[in-house]
Amino acid sequence: MGRRMGLAWTFLRVGALNELQYRVNFFLSLVQSVVAVGTALVVLALVFSHTDSLGGWSSDELLVIMGVYVLMGGLIRSVIQPNMQQLMEDVQEGTLDYVLTKPEDAQLLVSVRRFGLWQAVDIVVGLLLVAVALVRIGDPVSVWSVLAFVLTLILGGLDIYCFWLILTTSAFVVVRVDFLIELFDGMYQAGRWPVTIYPGWLRIGFTFLVPLAFAVTVPASALTGRLSGWLLLGAAAFTVGLLVLTRWVWRQGLRRYAGASA
């Protein structure tokens, strides 16, 4: 386990060093992030100019959700998506051979190879938003709720990772899956809002199919006094189940990989 963590850390460092060569990109990411957050704030203001609460959430509480959404988006774009995109390319071109021949677990390797340092700007911006929102709400935040927040955030991140890996594994079968990125980006947008406002069938979809509820709404609930012990337990159980399922799907997918003139 320790060796694997060390391996992931090494990849992270190399990825960061690689990105540090292109410093202008930091400002591009920052501008993009600021424009995106500015737009989202305007949207929030527009919605709340017509109502006081949305599905039981006040505007400051929704700001917590938005912060978590931005944070999780940064995590996806810096850690999860680059790796999955690389995996899609490798399957298409047959270069996955180079990963499979290495003496380490292939699922681990394909999950930690890439790291987009500048995209991580959103993680900081998201945390700032959460902090601002909590100050505006003004209620004291207990250590327990912060711990629960961190825990649910990690669980949510794992859920999204599993979801992505399962999607990407379909590349072993249908080869061309670039549109999946488009599809996921579209659906991830739904996470800006508490999943409770979506009609029944969509809410179930955003909870279990695309785990937006666990990735965004649940961590935000932890900070706004909405998280029960049962929900926390449920999130943990769901994540464990999903990790096992993902492992199985990954193995099935690998069997279908035939390589292609790498």
């Binding site: 949305l54 406002i197 009609p199």
Partner: peptide
């Protein structure tokens, strides 16, 4: 490919629709 792309685009209006319907109901 065209279809997949169009389906991906549906998420955006559906989200707006749900948000504004929720607001309308609460008002």
């Amino acid at each position: 490919a065209n279809y997949a792309y169009m389906l991906g685009m549906i998420a955006e209006p559906v989200i707006y629709l749900v948000v504004w319907s929720t607001v309308a109901r609460s008002q």
